[in-house]
């Protein structure tokens, strides 16, 4: 079911991001899916996530559909030109994968193929336009397609203070091109989301707030220093210090639970990134 459909039904939508395998063995991916599928509304698969080459998300989304799990496929601007983007979108539509989230993707310098060329033939707004055109039976060049797609298009946005002014402008363009829902980058401060919700209220789009589980204090500090759009407040980092591994798992879950509880009244859903801790997702959802 389309993400927007779920939101229309009044559901607080929970999506969960699971990394696509780096390799051809997908058992691990499916094991993780089994851990979360009873607790979440959809599973989201990244597109060469964090600029690390991985299996194309379409294959994983197809496997998800076979298991009756609603897929959400990410598509970045970095790795394909407009021919590849459109053909992949048609492939997704053919296999019935309809929830698409458009993103720019991390810089190649952060990933595992640092010499790769960044394509950026189309920007996010243009990809959204391409998908919307396909829903109307056309491609970007205006050619008529054999049949029309039925995409539900979302966009991934940052709401960190640094990129906010430009971000809001970009978001407006993306919405104008046909984005139907927003997923945010991981957020840890409810008040940051609150501010964003105020400024984004004129867009009248459902917002699903992103939240990556923190696995250790050092990992949180690493996010702060190395990922420009994410900020974990010091208070949370301190909360995670000085615990044993076992206790850290509990503390981390508690941080996530508290965050979601606080933001639940403000937004329409949460996009949970378990960072390999898929087995704790059901605990978290139950505790909400």
């Amino acid at each position: 079911m389309h993400i927007t459909e779920l939101i229309k039904q009044g559901k607080f939508v929970i999506t969960c991001e699971i990394d696509s395998p780096k390799g051809v063995n997908h058992e691990d991916f499916l094991d993780k899916v089994d851990m979360v599928k009873e607790s979440v509304d959809a599973v989201c698969v990244g597109d060469n996530l964090r600029a690390v080459m991985r299996c194309a998300p379409l294959a994983m989304c197809h496997l998800l559909q076979e298991r009756a799990v609603e897929p959400v496929m990410q598509m970045n601007t970095r790795d394909r030109n407009r021919l590849a983007i459109q053909s992949d979108l048609l492939a997704a539509a053919t296999l019935g994968v309809e929830n698409i989230v458009v993103t720019t993707g991390y810089d190649v310098s952060l990933g595992d193929h640092r010499e790769a060329v960044s394509v950026n033939d189309l920007d996010t707004a243009a990809i959204i336009r391409a998908a919307r055109e396909m829903n109307e039976g056309r491609d970007l060049a205006g050619h008529t397609l054999e049949g029309a797609s039925n995409f539900c298009i979302g966009v991934l946005t940052s709401l960190a203070p640094k990129s906010e002014p430009a971000g809001m402008e970009r978001l407006e363009r993306e919405v104008a091109e046909g984005a139907l829902f927003i997923i945010t980058q991981p957020v840890y401060q409810p008040d940051v989301l609150e501010k964003f919700m105020e400024s984004a209220s004129r867009l009248k789009l459902p917002v699903i707030v992103g939240h990556a589980m923190l696995k250790s204090a050092s990992m949180a500090s690493f996010l702060n220093s190395n990922v420009p759009d994410i900020h974990v407040p010091d208070g949370i980092i301190r909360q995670m210090e000085g615990h044993t591994r076992e206790d850290l798992i509990k503390v981390s879950q508690q941080i996530t639970i508290e965050f979601i509880k606080k933001v639940k009244p403000m937004c329409q859903g949460v996009h949970l990134i378990p960072m390999g801790w898929e087995r704790y997702v059901s605990n978290i959802i139950e505790a909400l």
């Binding site: 600029a51 250790s216 050092s218 500090s221």
Partner: peptide, 13 residues
């Protein structure tokens, strides 16, 4: 690397 940093278990970074 980014991937490694996100899996880090050190006390501090």
């Amino acid at each position: 690397t980014m991937e490694e940093g996100l899996q880090m278990e050190a006390d501090q970074y």
